[in-house]
Design a protein around this nucleic acid. Structure first.
Lengths: 415, 415
DNA sequence: CTGTTAGCGCATTCAC
DNA sequence: GTGAATGCGCTAACAG
C-alpha cells in the first residue's frame, strides 16, 4: 500500500514526458541539461510537472551513447581485503561524488586473470577512465589503458612500461621514517618483511629505502622521481654502517604460498630465538613452542613448491643481547607476522619482538602495534582528480603524486 | 614500441567491422551473439579477422539500450568498512562472474543520503536489479526497488514495508548458539551489546534471541519461518530462568554518537568493576545501572534526540562472584568494546571480561576472541542467484534464505 | 545463410 | 523560444 505511483510498469521515456507536457523532446532534453534560460517559465513548469507525474528519470545509457561520455570511471582494486583499498575507495567515492562521476568498482581479488577480465569489461562499457591499483603484472594486461587507450591513473604502484599519472605514498620517506624510529629506539636487529617485490614498485621502494638507511647511506636526498624501475641492487644491508652496527635483513613473505610462508617464518623464528633470553641459557620453553609453531596455520597445499623464500642478509648472533624488531611492509604482512608470533610466543609475544607496520589496520591500536598510516583517503581523492583532468583533456606529461605517511607510535616500539 | 595496434584513436564500431569484413552489420552482430551455426565458416573467419585487426570491442551500452538489458546489477553496501561487507562482496562477485552479470558497487558509507542517491543513480543507469544491504531507513528510500520497481534482494536485513527476497544469517540460531556457549562455560552475567536496533531486523532478531535464551525460554523451536517481521515478544530477559540464575542485559552502543558510546561504556565499566574483586563486597554501583534498565528494547519512536543509552534488564548483585561476558552483536561493536577494555584494563583485559562476537574479523584470531562466523561468501553468492532468478522472471512469493553461523571458540571464552 | 530496415532513449544541428 | 529531423552503436524482425 501507500503512495507508490503506478510507476515502474515500464520506465517513462523522454518521449512520454514530451507528450505528457504537450511539447517536443527537445525541450525536455534542454530542461534536463539545465538550459533553463532558453525555456519559457510556462513551458518549464509544465515539463516539471510532467516529469514529476511520470516519475521520469533520464536513461544514462542512452544519454551516454549519444553524447559520447557516460560519466563512468572504473576503479580496479587488487585486493579489497586489504583495508588500504577500502580507505582509498572512500576518497575515490567522495571525489567522484564531487565531480559527478560514477565509479564502477572492480575487485580483482589478487587474480591477474580477473584483473584482465575486468579491465576489458570496463572498456567494453566505455568508461571514460580508470584508476587502477594493479596487481604485479606488467603492461601486457593494461594494454587497453594508458597512453594509447583510455585515460588511467595508477594508485600505490606504477606499472612497468605504462606511462600514466600515479598517486600513492611517499614510500622512500615512509620506510626511512619507520627504520629511523626503530633505530632511535634502540633496536639493532631489524627485519624488513615484505611480499615478493619484483613486480610491485611500492614494495621495491620501501625495501630499498630500508636497506639504504640500514647501510648508513640514509641521509642522501630523494634521487629522481619515484622511478621504481631499476631497483636491482640486492646488496644485503648487513649493517655495520652507523647506528652502532645495527643489522638489517630483508625477508620475503609470499603470502600466496603457504609453504614459502612457513619457511620464511621459520627463519625468522631462528633469529628471534637467537637473541632470545636476555641472559645466557635461553630457549627451552621456546623449543616446545617452536614445534607447534611452524605447522600452525599455513601448512596446507605446498602449492607449486617454488622458493621465493628468503632474500636475506647474514644472521649472526653477537655477544651482547640485541633487540630485534620486525618492519612489515604492509598490513597483510603485519597480520601474518602477528598471528604467527602470537601462536609461537603466546599473548605476550610483543615482549620478545617489536613490530612496526606500514598501513594502519584497525587491529593495530588494539594490539599496540606502531604503524605508519598512509593518507589513503587523500590518495583516492587525488587519483580521481588527476583522472578527471585527464578526461577533460589535460595533456601534461605523466605526473607522480607522493603523499607523506604518518608515524603512529604505540607500545610495541616505544618500550 | 611493441605490438600495440594503432588502436584507440576512436574505438571501432560494428559498422567499421562490417566494412572491414566486407559484409553487413547483422552478421557481425550474430557473430557477437554466438549464433555461429548460422554463419558460413568462410564469413565467420573474415569477421574474426576483422575484429582482431580492429581490436573491436562491442559497446555494451549501445547493446543494452537496444536489447533492454545491460547485464548490470547494483550492489548497495551500507558500510564497506565492515569486513562483513567485503566478504559478502566476494561471493557476489563470484556469482556475477558465473552468471555473466556486472555488479556496480555502491558504498553508502553509513549515510542515508548516499544510499538514496546511489539507488537513484542505479535506476538511472537502468540496472536490471539490485542487491542491497540497507541502512536503517525504511521503505521510503527503497521505493524505486522491490515490488513495483526493479528486482531487489536484501542482504543481512529486511526492510520494513519492502517485500523482496532476503538472504542472511540465521540470527536466532546464531544468537542462541553464542549465548548458550557463554552459559555453558560458566558465565552468569552476560551483556549483549548492540547498535541501535529499532531499524535493523538482524540486530533485533539477535537481541530477541539472546533475551529469550537468557530468560529460559530458550529451548523452544524456531517458530514458523524466519519471518522476521512480527517478532513481538518483548519480555525482558531478566534472567533467573534456568542456568542457575544467570543475568542477561542488553546494552545499546550507538557507534555514530561518541557521547552515547561513552555513556554506555561507562555503564559497562561499572558492571565490570562490580564483579571486579573476586571477593565479597560487591554491587553498589550496580544499583545505579539498574535504574535505567527496564525501559528496554524497541521504544523507537523517540528516534532522534533519544538516549539509546541503555536498554537493559535488571542488574542484580549476588553474593558469589560472578563471571562476566560481553556478547557483541557484530564486529564493529566488538572492536569498539575491545578497544575500550584494553584502554581501561590494560593488555590483559580478557582476564576480566570475556568477549564473544558475531562476525569474525581478522583481529579475532590475533586477540583470541571467540566468534560466530557468518557464511558471508555464500550469502553474497545466494543473493545474486536469487536476484538472477528474479531478473529472469521468477514470480514466487518473497523468499528468505537463512544460513547458519559457525561458532569459533577461542581463548576468550574457553578458559 | 545473409543483407535491409527499423528503431532503443536521448542530444543535436538547424530550421521555424 | 521551440520543435522536427538525424544518428550514436547495436539488435531484431523481415525479407532475399
Amino acid at each position: 500500500m501507500s503512495t507508490t505511483p503506478p510507476a515502474a510498469a515500464r520506465r517513462a521515456t523522454i518521449t512520454d514526458v514530451a507528450r505528457e507536457a504537450g511539447t517536443g523532446k527537445t525541450s525536455i532534453s534542454r530542461y534536463l541539461n539545465g538550459e533553463m534560460s532558453v525555456l519559457s517559465p510556462e513551458l518549464r513548469a509544465r515539463i516539471e510537472a510532467a516529469i514529476e507525474r511520470l516519475d521520469y528519470q533520464p536513461n544514462q545509457m542512452a544519454r551516454g551513447l549519444k553524447r559520447g561520455r557516460n560519466r563512468l570511471i572504473g576503479m580496479l582494486l587488487a585486493d579489497l581485503t586489504n583495508p588500504y583499498s577500502v580507505e582509498v575507495l572512500q576518497g575515490v567515492e567522495a571525489a567522484c561524488h564531487a565531480l559527478g562521476l560514477m565509479p564502477l568498482i572492480c575487485h580483482a581479488a589478487n587474480e591477474v586473470e580477473m584483473e584482465r577480465r575486468y579491465l576489458q569489461l570496463l572498456t567494453t562499457y566505455r568508461v571514460e577512465g580508470v584508476i587502477v591499483n594493479a596487481l604485479g603484472v606488467r603492461e601486457e594486461t593494461l594494454r587497453p589503458v594508458g597512453g594509447g587507450g583510455i585515460p588511467a591513473v595508477l594508485v600505490d604502484r606504477s606499472v612497468e612500461g605504462l606511462v600514466a599519472d600515479m598517486v600513492g605514498l611517499d614510500n622512500r620517506a615512509a620506510a626511512e621514517l619507520g627504520t629511523r624510529h626503530l633505530l632511535d629506539n634502540g633496536f639493532d636487529d631489524i627485519w624488513f618483511v615484505v611480499q615478493p617485490f619484483e613486480q610491485i614498485s611500492s614494495r621495491q621502494l620501501r625495501e630499498a629505502a630500508f636497506r639504504e638507511v640500514m647501510s648508513g647511506e640514509g641521509g642522501k636526498g630523494r634521487e629522481g622521481g619515484p622511478g621504481g624501475k631499476g631497483e636491482g641492487s640486492r646488496t644485503g644491508g648487513k649493517g655495520n654502517g652507523d647506528k652502532g652496527g645495527a643489522r638489517g635483513h630483508t625477508l620475503v613473505l609470499n603470502l600466496a604460498e603457504p609453504a614459502a610462508v612457513e619457511r620464511a617464518l621459520a627463519e625468522l623464528d631462528r633469529a628471534i630465538d637467537a637473541v632470545g633470553g636476555s641472559g645466557g641459557a635461553v630457549s627451552s620453553a621456546a623449543d616446545n613452542a617452536a614445534r607447534s609453531a611452524t605447522d600452525n596455520a599455513t601448512d596446507n597445499a605446498t602449492d607449486n613448491a617454488t622458493d621465493n623464500a628468503t632474500v636475506t642478509a647474514a644472521v649472526r648472533a653477537i655477544g651482547k643481547p640485541s633487540r630485534i624488531a620486525l618492519f612489515a611492509a604492509n598490513a597483510p604482512v603485519a597480520l601474518c607476522l602477528a598471528l604467527h608470533l602470537k601462536a609461537r610466543y603466546g599473548v605476550d609475544w610483543q615482549a620478545r619482538v617489536a613490530l612496526l607496520s606500514i598501513d594502519d589496520p584497525e587491529w593495530a591500536e588494539l594490539t599496540g602495534v606502531t604503524t605508519i598510516r598512509q593518507p589513503t583517503y587523500e590518495i583516492g581523492y587525488r587519483a580521481v582528480e588527476f583522472l578527471h583532468e585527464r578526461i577533460e583533456g589535460v595533456q601534461t606529461t605523466a605526473r607522480d603524486c607522493l603523499l607523506p605517511g604518518e608515524l603512529i607510535i604505540r607500545a610495541s616500539t616505544s618500550r
